[in-house]
């Protein structure tokens, strides 16, 4: 949604600059359990994005007066490191954008985690964007879902997502930074494939009704591919060579 000045041609001969087709995702690799101290963690490498997710809890609530006697509180924090962008040095700590993203990420996990099993506790989900190249919020939440499972916290589903955009009039999945900056629309979403529900939905751009419907279908299609990588990550950490006892 950037300035039209310096806008590169994003679609050449029906292909994206990166050579990808409309539904092709960038390379995606998730590693579960990368941190020692955290109860659960995951590192996601998605295109040039690098996001670390760590989970602590369920643990005692701080500040104490916010305790909910019926459920665990979810504290989600999404932050971009000052060195994470290809441009200038950023400010450290949360800004308006990251505060908003932290809020909608929290809502995803308020739905996804079985919070009623852990009353009077809180679960902290920390998402640190170390390198950004478009689509960091879906990468962060996708990694956080793996980190929650790594922490052994009961969840309704592995949740994941992808961002769907429109560049040079074509709807494409998994926007990189250029496509995000100079594209006509961006729709990041997180879904649960088990329930068929959209748990995070944001968009801006200018889309007709068929385009919105098509983008939503593309999100569910993309999520299936992302989910495979989440399962791979958890298998790699937890699957053993020992055959189950008969």
């Amino acid at each position: 949604m950037g300035s039209s000045a310096n806008k590169p041609q994003l679609i050449v001969d029906g292909k994206r600059i990166s050579g990808r087709g409309p539904m092709d995702l960038r390379n995606l690799k998730i590693t579960a359990g990368v941190l020692k101290k955290a109860n659960g963690s995951a590192m996601i490498e998605w295109g040039n994005n690098r996001v670390l997710a760590a989970v602590y809890g369920p643990r005692e609530v701080f500040p104490k007066h916010t305790t909910d006697p019926r459920k665990a509180l979810i504290h989600a924090r999404y932050v971009m490191a000052p060195f994470s962008s290809a441009e200038e040095h950023g400010r450290s700590g949360p800004n308006r954008r990251s505060i908003e993203i932290s809020k909608v990420a929290k809502h995803v996990f308020e739905n996804n985690v079985l919070v009623n099993q852990f009353p009077k506790t809180m679960i902290n989900i920390d998402m640190e964007v170390l390198q950004s190249d478009g689509g960091t919020r879906v990468a962060a939440i996708t990694a956080a879902s793996v980190a929650l499972v790594d922490a052994g916290i009961p969840v309704r589903d592995l949740v994941q997502g992808v961002s769907i955009g429109k560049v040079d009039g074509m709807q494409v999945a998994d926007l990189d930074k250029n496509e995000d900056n100079y594209g006509e629309s961006d729709m990041p979403a997180i879904v649960s494939l088990r329930t068929g529900e959209i748990l995070l939905y944001q968009m801006d751009g200018k889309l007709t009704r068929p385009e919105v419907d098509n983008a939503l279908s593309m999100i569910f299609e993309g999520a299936k591919k992302v989910r495979e990588k989440q399962v791979e990550a958890l298998r790699a950490k937890y699957e053993t060579d020992v055959a189950p006892q008969e």
């Binding site: 959209i198 968009m203 200018k206």
Partner: peptide, 21 residues
């Protein structure tokens, strides 16, 4: 009167594709 230009889901509820449409 016709274009979706921005959207935001807030709160823990999930929405199905058809419901959103």
């Amino acid at each position: 009167g016709q274009y979706m230009v921005a959207s935001q889901k807030s709160g823990r509820a999930g929405f199905k594709q058809q419901e959103l449409m």
